[in-house]
Amino acid sequence: MNRTPEPPPAPSSGPAIVEEMLPLEDGRLAGLHARLAARAEQEGLLEVAYRTVDSPVGPLLLAATPQGLVRIAYEREGFDAVLETLAARIGPRVLAAPRPLDAAAAELEEYFAGNRRAFDLPLDHALSSGFRAVVQRALPRIDYGRTRTYQEVAELVGNPRAVRAVGTACATNPLPLVVPCHRVLRSDGSLGGYLGGAEAKTLLLALEREGSAA
């Protein structure tokens, strides 16, 4: 995985000299990794498969369980921290394996190209519970190119006084973009927070305005 940082020097491995004397060809390990990922998937051993993709809002980490897409993360969230959380909360059999994310990557690419208004992907909501889960499941009801206020979303889920909780639900959305928390704004029309950053939120809203006008 090209975005995984350099591993720390292994303290217990033999003298560094022997590793220099016995070099490995470039790309050999990547080939073995790909083979491992394919077999692990085939044998149903993966709890979480992930890959990264580039996008107009920066690199994104996509992660899926056998049930469906479970996490989309922005780079500013720290991919390593996100993977550690996935391992702790879902299971430690976490492996960089691109194929299970092919459909999600393709749909996101179409979305960013302005050619997709809704996502058609199996989702795994395992990372959300309680009221947050209720809010996050309701967000896809806000149509492409439209926005709602936190207050309106609170009303939408039948709890008009839970405005702050709606804000929290948006801020902790494990599936941004696909679950469109970027379409929720403050009542005064200002942007409100976004886990991908204000710039990303602005970009997404502009993208969808253009997409709806077309």
Binding site: E84, A87, V94
Partner: peptide, 19 residues
């Protein structure tokens, strides 16, 4: 028991095991 992502083990020790 282990809570680290398995990917870390592949990244950190894949080369050693191949050698």
């Amino acid at each position: 028991t282990m809570t680290e992502p398995f990917e870390q083990a592949v990244q950190r020790h894949g080369e050693t095991v191949l050698r």
